[in-house]
Design a protein around this nucleic acid. Structure first.
Length: 284
DNA sequence: ACTGTCAAGCAGGTTG
DNA sequence: CAACCTGCTTGACAGT
């Protein structure tokens, strides 16, 4: 057992927890801005090459979008959802002969202000946005990405977890999605990755905590034994307690600060504190 | 009915 | 100041 098993993770446990797991794919990528919080990346998936399996849970189903529309009065600027017909030869039609993917035009007022003119143009081309469907029936449906779309997004995410505008445009064109949808997918994907990594780190910290608790218990016991020894053997009574140390591994009493001394009971120049992080195996 | 997932919204911070 | 990000939240949908 020991700290090496549980804590050899590059983690630093102290008053502040610092973990910097950098994604190797950052190099050819748009440099992400520094965040005040910890920056986690899922290195396992980020580092591996793309395989045709999906990592996101997907129903894999396509949806026949019913044509109903409603306005979300809680959101400023309305919240409209629309039926979107599959473009010929694109991913939608490849996914399923029945597939029809809904698309949103939510938050139009703010979003159109945020979008560049190029993106607005792409949106108009890639997503049919109108106040009503062909049926004239209100529609509010949640967009579900097809397997193919998710797979391509995942593949792209493995290459770089952030997108520059050109990559975004290209991906959106490829997937027949709005650039905004690609952007949102990447934002949510990063958030999920971070959450997952946080959970992993949390588990590691729990293990470290348990290990340290055990170590502390053991050291307390050793201290008690030393005190008992001190009372039993008058020899030790002449030495200040702080000058004596016991190696936790070989359990021999010795001094510190004098590594060359042949005498195990040399006087320490200063108190010695056992630090499991800087000295995880008590370094005999 | 309840819960988990996920696309998408907004607020606020950072950066060039 | 625009563009981008994170963090939090909302709402639709699927699974139980």
């Amino acid at each position: 057992m020991g700290l090496d098993d549980a804590c050899n993770t590059g983690l630093v446990l102290g008053l502040g927890f610092s973990s910097t797991l950098e994604t190797p794919s950052k190099a050819n990528n748009q440099t992400p801005k520094k965040s005040p919080c910890l920056k986690f990346e899922q290195t396992a998936t980020a580092a591996t090459s793309f395989e045709p399996s999906l990592t996101l849970g997907l129903s894999g189903e396509s949806y026949q979008v019913t044509a109903t529309k409603k306005i979300d009065v809680n959101k400023g600027g309305g919240y409209l959802h629309h039926h979107e017909e599959p473009a010929a030869g694109d991913l939608y039609s490849q996914a399923s002969p029945h597939s029809a993917v809904s698309s949103f035009s939510s938050g139009r007022v703010k979003r159109e202000r945020d979008l560049s003119s190029e993106e607005v143009e792409v949106e108009k081309n890639s997503s049919r946005v109108s106040d009503e469907d062909e049926d004239g029936v209100n529609a509010r449906k949640k967009l579900r990405l097809t397997k193919e779309q998710s797979a391509l997004l995942e593949e792209s995410f493995k290459q770089h977890s952030t997108l520059n505008p050109k990559q975004k445009q290209a991906l959106a064109r490829q997937l027949n999605l709005r650039p905004r949808q690609v952007e949102v997918w990447f934002q949510n994907r990063r958030a999920r990755t971070k959450l997952k990594q946080t959970e992993v780190d949390c588990e590691l910290l729990k293990k470290c905590c348990e290990t340290l608790t055990d170590e502390n218990r053991r050291l307390q016991k050793e201290l008690q034994e030393l005190k008992a020894l001190k009372l039993a053997q008058p020899f030790y009574m002449h030495m200040p307690a702080a000058t004596l140390t016991m190696c936790p591994s070989c359990e021999r009493i010795g001094g510190v600060g004098d590594g060359n001394s042949k005498n195990p009971f040399s006087i320490a120049s200063k108190p010695h504190f056992y630090n499991p992080f800087t000295n995880p195996s008590a370094a005999c």
